[in-house]
Protein backbone atom coordinates (compact mmCIF):
# COMPACT_ATOMS: atom_id res chain seq x y z
CA UNK A 1 0.00 0.00 0.00
CA UNK A 2 1.23 3.38 -0.97
CA UNK A 3 -0.03 6.70 0.27
CA UNK A 4 -0.06 9.44 -2.36
CA UNK A 5 -0.81 13.06 -1.60
CA UNK A 6 -2.49 15.02 -4.40
CA UNK A 7 -2.21 18.70 -3.64
CA UNK A 8 -2.14 21.72 -5.89
CA UNK A 9 -2.89 25.36 -6.58
CA UNK A 10 -1.36 26.57 -3.34
CA UNK A 11 -0.54 29.98 -4.84
CA UNK A 12 1.81 30.81 -1.98
CA UNK A 13 2.28 33.59 -1.15
CA UNK A 14 0.39 35.33 -3.95
CA UNK A 15 -3.11 34.35 -2.96
CA UNK A 16 -2.77 33.00 0.57
CA UNK A 17 -0.50 33.55 3.55
CA UNK A 18 -0.10 29.89 4.35
CA UNK A 19 -1.65 26.46 4.18
CA UNK A 20 -4.54 26.14 6.66
CA UNK A 21 -3.13 25.10 10.05
CA UNK A 22 -5.48 22.15 10.24
CA UNK A 23 -4.13 20.84 6.94
CA UNK A 24 -0.57 21.40 8.03
CA UNK A 25 -1.07 19.33 11.13
CA UNK A 26 -2.44 16.51 8.99
CA UNK A 27 0.49 16.53 6.62
CA UNK A 28 3.17 15.10 8.85
CA UNK A 29 6.40 13.85 7.35
CA UNK A 30 7.02 10.12 7.16
CA UNK A 31 3.63 8.79 6.19
CA UNK A 32 3.32 9.84 2.59
CA UNK A 33 5.41 8.17 -0.09
CA UNK A 34 4.61 10.33 -3.14
CA UNK A 35 3.34 13.82 -3.66
CA UNK A 36 1.64 14.74 -6.90
CA UNK A 37 1.26 18.46 -7.41
CA UNK A 38 -0.47 19.52 -10.63
CA UNK A 39 1.04 23.00 -10.32
CA UNK A 40 0.81 26.56 -9.07
CA UNK A 41 2.96 26.22 -6.03
CA UNK A 42 4.13 29.65 -7.17
CA UNK A 43 7.36 29.89 -5.17
CA UNK A 44 10.28 27.67 -4.39
CA UNK A 45 9.38 28.01 -0.68
CA UNK A 46 6.12 26.18 -1.26
CA UNK A 47 7.98 23.47 -3.15
CA UNK A 48 10.42 23.15 -0.26
CA UNK A 49 7.49 22.78 2.11
CA UNK A 50 6.13 19.85 0.08
CA UNK A 51 9.59 18.33 -0.01
CA UNK A 52 9.66 18.50 3.77
CA UNK A 53 6.50 16.41 3.91
CA UNK A 54 7.87 13.85 1.47
CA UNK A 55 10.95 14.05 -0.69
CA UNK A 56 9.34 12.37 -3.70
CA UNK A 57 7.43 15.24 -5.30
CA UNK A 58 6.19 15.28 -8.88
CA UNK A 59 5.15 18.68 -10.18
CA UNK A 60 3.73 19.91 -13.46
CA UNK A 61 3.71 23.46 -14.74
CA UNK A 62 1.03 25.86 -13.53
CA UNK A 63 0.21 29.17 -15.15
CA UNK A 64 1.35 31.18 -12.11
CA UNK A 65 4.47 29.25 -11.16
CA UNK A 66 7.51 31.47 -10.81
CA UNK A 67 9.69 28.70 -12.12
CA UNK A 68 9.17 27.42 -15.64
CA UNK A 69 11.19 24.28 -15.16
CA UNK A 70 8.31 21.84 -14.76
CA UNK A 71 6.95 19.78 -17.66
CA UNK A 72 3.35 20.31 -18.84
CA UNK A 73 2.38 16.71 -18.22
CA UNK A 74 3.84 13.79 -16.32
CA UNK A 75 2.85 10.17 -15.91
CA UNK A 76 3.95 8.12 -12.92
CA UNK A 77 3.35 4.46 -12.19
CA UNK A 78 2.03 3.86 -8.68
CA UNK A 79 1.15 0.29 -7.82
CA UNK A 80 -0.46 -0.98 -11.02
CA UNK A 81 -1.94 2.42 -11.79
CA UNK A 82 -0.77 4.90 -14.35
CA UNK A 83 -1.35 8.29 -12.84
CA UNK A 84 -1.23 11.32 -15.11
CA UNK A 85 -0.55 14.82 -13.93
CA UNK A 86 -1.41 18.08 -15.67
CA UNK A 87 -2.31 21.47 -14.25
CA UNK A 88 -5.23 21.99 -16.62
CA UNK A 89 -4.97 25.63 -17.70
CA UNK A 90 -3.77 24.25 -21.04
CA UNK A 91 -6.94 22.22 -21.49
CA UNK A 92 -9.62 24.36 -23.13
CA UNK A 93 -12.37 24.73 -21.97
CA UNK A 94 -11.00 24.74 -18.41
CA UNK A 95 -12.18 21.80 -16.35
CA UNK A 96 -14.27 20.38 -19.20
CA UNK A 97 -14.71 16.65 -18.75
CA UNK A 98 -14.58 15.76 -22.44
CA UNK A 99 -11.55 17.93 -23.03
CA UNK A 100 -9.78 16.34 -20.05
CA UNK A 101 -10.77 12.93 -21.39
CA UNK A 102 -8.79 13.65 -24.57
CA UNK A 103 -5.74 14.36 -22.45
CA UNK A 104 -6.36 11.25 -20.44
CA UNK A 105 -6.53 9.12 -23.58
CA UNK A 106 -3.33 10.68 -24.78
CA UNK A 107 -1.46 10.10 -21.53
CA UNK A 108 -3.15 6.69 -21.23
CA UNK A 109 -3.55 7.12 -17.49
CA UNK A 110 -5.98 5.36 -15.19
CA UNK A 111 -6.15 8.37 -12.94
CA UNK A 112 -5.66 11.95 -14.06
CA UNK A 113 -4.72 14.41 -11.34
CA UNK A 114 -5.44 17.97 -12.36
CA UNK A 115 -6.22 21.37 -10.90
CA UNK A 116 -6.64 24.97 -11.99
CA UNK A 117 -10.38 25.25 -11.29
CA UNK A 118 -9.89 25.35 -7.48
CA UNK A 119 -12.93 23.15 -7.19
CA UNK A 120 -12.50 19.66 -5.88
CA UNK A 121 -13.90 17.01 -8.16
CA UNK A 122 -13.38 13.28 -8.39
CA UNK A 123 -15.31 11.35 -10.95
CA UNK A 124 -15.20 8.38 -13.27
CA UNK A 125 -15.17 8.94 -16.96
CA UNK A 126 -15.14 6.06 -19.37
CA UNK A 127 -13.58 3.61 -16.92
CA UNK A 128 -10.96 6.08 -15.86
CA UNK A 129 -10.81 8.47 -12.97
CA UNK A 130 -10.18 12.18 -12.75
CA UNK A 131 -9.22 13.97 -9.58
CA UNK A 132 -9.27 17.73 -9.59
CA UNK A 133 -7.41 18.55 -6.38
CA UNK A 134 -8.97 21.95 -5.77
CA UNK A 135 -6.80 24.54 -4.07
CA UNK A 136 -5.12 23.49 -0.84
CA UNK A 137 -5.21 27.07 0.39
CA UNK A 138 -8.66 27.90 -0.95
CA UNK A 139 -6.94 30.52 -3.09
CA UNK A 140 -8.76 33.07 -5.23
CA UNK A 141 -9.77 31.64 -8.56
CA UNK A 142 -11.06 33.39 -11.63
CA UNK A 143 -13.63 30.67 -12.26
CA UNK A 144 -14.64 29.52 -8.79
CA UNK A 145 -16.08 31.79 -6.14
CA UNK A 146 -14.91 31.27 -2.55
CA UNK A 147 -13.06 28.04 -3.18
CA UNK A 148 -13.05 25.45 -0.40
CA UNK A 149 -9.52 24.47 0.63
CA UNK A 150 -8.99 20.85 -0.32
CA UNK A 151 -6.53 18.12 -1.14
CA UNK A 152 -6.72 14.37 -1.63
CA UNK A 153 -4.88 11.40 -0.20
CA UNK A 154 -4.83 8.33 -2.34
CA UNK A 155 -4.17 4.93 -0.89
CA UNK A 156 -3.00 2.76 -3.75
CA UNK A 157 -3.01 -1.01 -3.45
CA UNK A 158 -2.15 -2.73 -6.73
CA UNK A 159 -4.84 -1.67 -9.19
CA UNK A 160 -7.07 -0.24 -6.51
CA UNK A 161 -7.07 3.31 -5.20
CA UNK A 162 -8.97 4.59 -2.22
CA UNK A 163 -9.23 8.35 -2.41
CA UNK A 164 -9.72 10.35 0.77
CA UNK A 165 -10.88 13.88 0.12
CA UNK A 166 -9.98 16.47 2.72
CA UNK A 167 -11.93 19.70 2.68
CA UNK A 168 -11.94 22.60 5.12
CA UNK A 169 -15.57 23.55 5.56
CA UNK A 170 -16.27 26.35 8.03
CA UNK A 171 -13.02 25.72 9.82
CA UNK A 172 -13.60 21.99 10.18
CA UNK A 173 -11.83 19.29 8.23
CA UNK A 174 -14.31 17.13 6.37
CA UNK A 175 -13.22 13.80 4.94
CA UNK A 176 -14.89 11.87 2.15
CA UNK A 177 -13.93 8.53 0.70
CA UNK A 178 -14.12 7.24 -2.85
CA UNK A 179 -12.87 4.07 -4.42
CA UNK A 180 -11.51 3.31 -7.81
CA UNK A 181 -10.52 -0.05 -9.21
CA UNK A 182 -8.72 -0.35 -12.48
CA UNK A 183 -10.88 -2.32 -14.89
CA UNK A 184 -9.38 -5.43 -16.43
CA UNK A 185 -8.31 -4.38 -19.87
CA UNK A 186 -7.30 -6.42 -22.85
CA UNK A 187 -4.30 -5.65 -24.95
CA UNK A 188 -5.70 -3.80 -27.93
CA UNK A 189 -8.72 -2.14 -29.37
CA UNK A 190 -11.89 -4.13 -29.46
CA UNK A 191 -10.62 -6.66 -27.01
CA UNK A 192 -12.04 -4.86 -24.07
CA UNK A 193 -13.75 -7.44 -21.98
CA UNK A 194 -17.31 -6.84 -21.17
Amino acid sequence: MVLVLCIGDLHLPHRAADLPTKFKSLLVPGKISHILCPGNLCTETAYDYLRSVCSDVTVTQGDFDESTKWPDTQVVLIGDLRVGLCHGHQVVPWGDREALAILQRKLDCDILVTGHTHRFEAYRHEDRMVISTGSATGAYSAVTENPTPSFALMDVDGGKATVYVYELVEGQVKVDKLEFTKPQRGGGVGLRQL
Binding site: D63, T68, H89, Q90, V92, W94, A142
Partner: peptide, 17 residues
Protein backbone atom coordinates in the same frame (compact mmCIF):
# COMPACT_ATOMS: atom_id res chain seq x y z
CA UNK B 1 9.30 30.31 -27.48
CA UNK B 2 8.40 28.08 -24.54
CA UNK B 3 7.03 31.06 -22.65
CA UNK B 4 5.20 32.13 -25.77
CA UNK B 5 3.43 28.79 -25.91
CA UNK B 6 2.51 29.09 -22.25
CA UNK B 7 1.23 32.64 -22.59
CA UNK B 8 -0.83 31.75 -25.62
CA UNK B 9 -2.40 28.80 -23.78
CA UNK B 10 -3.53 31.20 -21.06
CA UNK B 11 -4.81 33.77 -23.55
CA UNK B 12 -6.93 31.18 -25.32
CA UNK B 13 -8.11 29.54 -22.12
CA UNK B 14 -9.19 32.89 -20.67
CA UNK B 15 -10.86 34.14 -23.83
CA UNK B 16 -12.82 30.92 -24.05
CA UNK B 17 -14.29 31.76 -20.65
Amino acid sequence: SRQEVRALQSIIGTLNR
